[in-house]
Design a protein around this nucleic acid. Structure first.
Lengths: 351, 351
DNA sequence: GCAGTCACGGAAAGCGTTTTCCGTTGTGAG
DNA sequence: CTCACAACGGAAAACGCTTTCCGTGACTGC
């Protein structure tokens, strides 16, 4: 009356390699070899073991594997960003790379708290991760990770370290600014104003330099007073428009430090009866879809390719883990996403 | 001439318990006991061992620990959301809970791809996690995780499962709609229109029901034709305003299904010279800071408390891991964030 | 002074893998 | 028919820790 069939019995916990060995009537080592494709076994044996293992739903314990010296195939990801506007695409890019290599990720959110960060690092070290990626805000450069004396590859993605020797990948803000400037010049605009974020932020300075460079190549100057620094908000965009219209009525283009400012600028211009792009062209920065696409007209803006940045960060860490040398600040090119706030691409011959 | 000092020598890799034992001149087991507070040791011995361990920067391998039967103290987090507008706060809430318990998190981004999800689950199982939290979009109910026959606690946070028996935590959308409705009623508004997202979405239905309920309690009806369903976009907000002003000029309040719609509505109203909130009060949903606060006037809106939702999801999973019974759909109350789009709280006696 | 108790700390057996090293067996050649 | 040599697969050590079980020595009480 009892079930006497060959239903696999699993008394306690997951199937181990022992269970497989017993079921397949071979030794432990044979199972291991069969499943890992190592050693010298008849193909026949291999297949048999494989079949049994599958039937038993054997799933080798990664823990046990890592213990016996293999690579851990796990990395740590420390994020200091809580707002997450930028972290998320980066994070996804990183995962893309690591997924492809079947590497697991320990996620740690330090939330800017040094004590919490310390604990997370401790935990990562205790878990013997193969490497660490740090990501988060880059507004202010951070100190390098304190690895408690351990040696471990660390890569900084979208995160600036005080010492420029540490391997890190950042968007090419200068290039981004340049893209915007060139686009405006190509469209024949010549009275450009730059409305941007806090003056002390590195990205703000770089974007401005890029713009300046592009304008210069077209024989145009960007006088310092036409660079308005403020906060990263729509409200600042509105305020800036007041000043611009009052001070320089001949303005025909505004490059904004981010999309929120750009949205404020566009809204304010519309409210004042200034046509975008006919009277004034506007370029944003970030390509924050939800804002850029909803603006009326939709924003032409610079995209930092954060997903790609994450992907490459992942690759670089892998390189480091494999013993490769990676150092210093690298910059990933931005790209320009053309929507309607500068006029169609059709008119690009007009300049 | 050689350095004969007692500089701790670390020939290869991390310090092990052996190294500590040797340095402290005691046995392995004594070190383990001293460091874990188990066994019977003189406080003196304990201290001594502790000191040596610290000096050597001994960091017990979590891997080895988990192998020898202890709890793994690690969970998996499967996220199917790539946009991440909602995942992020949830995710942070979860981490808050788990950090407090020193539990590590394996992050997996399935990105909606079943094959990728399968691989991640496999990896989590192989890593012997203690439990799994699934989070992501809830627009359409998902199938339960396929655990390959393994038994493991799984909790669904902000993610709907087809079978309502699975343990899951969702925002109380109905309650949220009710909050909005009550707020409007209290402010004396009586001609309410509801502009919301796709009709088939559960949250859309619930929010509408909540609104209806609140109105009913104040003797007001919400005729079906005054519920306008569309997309979750600003553009839809604009369009809806056209219809509303044409069809029901006496409208004095609009409850929007999310903040993007609300923003579109407010912008459109302003463009048509309708004053917000004087003529029409507007309530949003989501409390998406970046939109709600930047709208002019800033949006009064419903907050789903996603961070708290994540926190509680973490706690629930811990309960399950500890053997507790958790089942069925639970709802977390929303709260109302009052800004300016309905008028100040001052005027609440006006009704 | 002697047995009986403790307090202490060491030896060793796991935990689930991989990997190295050997002992079989079967084959072909001499 | 024996020998050498592959080819195959098993035994056992190792990975770094926890934990159980014991052996020691020092203390108590008589």
């Amino acid at each position: 009356m009892a079930m006497l069939g060959r239903r696999p019995v699993r008394p306690s916990g997951p199937v181990t390699i022992h269970d497989v060995a017993k079921a397949a009537q071979v030794s432990l080592s044979t199972v291991s070899k069969a499943l890992n494709g190592t050693g010298q076994l008849r193909e026949e044996t291999r297949d048999m073991v494989r079949r049994v293992a599958e039937e038993l739903r054997f799933r080798p314990s990664e823990i046990a594997r890592s213990l016996s010296g293999r690579q851990r195939r796990t990395i740590g990801l420390i994020s200091s960003d809580h707002h997450g506007r930028f972290s998320l695409p980066v994070l996804e890019g990183i995962q893309d790379t690591l997924d492809a290599e079947s590497i697991s990720v320990f996620l740690c959110n330090a939330a800017g708290d040094p004590e919490r960060e310390r604990q997370h690092i401790h935990s990562l070290l205790a878990n013997r991760v193969d490497g660490i990626i740090v990501t988060g805000t880059r507004a202010t450069p951070r100190h390098p990770l304190n690895l408690e004396g351990e040696h471990l590859p660390v890569f900084y993605a979208f995160s600036r370290v005080v010492d420029p020797d540490y391997p890190c990948l950042l968007p090419d803000d200068r290039g981004g600014g340049q893209l915007a400037g060139e686009h405006l010049c190509r469209l024949g605009r010549s009275h450009v104003v730059h409305v941007t974020g806090p003056a002390h932020v590195e990205a703000v300075q770089h974007r401005r330099q890029g713009l300046e460079h592009a304008l210069a190549e077209h024989g145009l100057a960007l006088p310092p007073e036409r660079v308005l620094t403020g906060s990263w908000s729509e409200a600042w965009g509105h305020e800036a428009v007041d000043r611009i219209l009052a001070a320089w009525p001949s303005t025909d283009a505004i490059f904004c430090g981010n999309d929120q400012i750009a949205r404020g600028v566009v809204d304010a211009l519309r409210a004042r009866g200034v046509r975008v792009p006919a009277d004034i062209a506007v370029v944003g920065f970030d390509n924050w879809e939800i804002i850029a696409a909803a603006t009326r007209p939709p924003l032409t803006t610079v995209d930092m390719n954060l997903h790609e940045l994450g992907r490459q960060a992942g690759l670089q860490l892998l390189t480091m883990i494999d013993g490769g040398e990676v150092r210093g600040v690298q910059r990933l090119p931005c790209s320009l996403v053309v929507r309607e706030s500068c006029g169609g691409q059709m008119s690009q011959n007009r300049g």
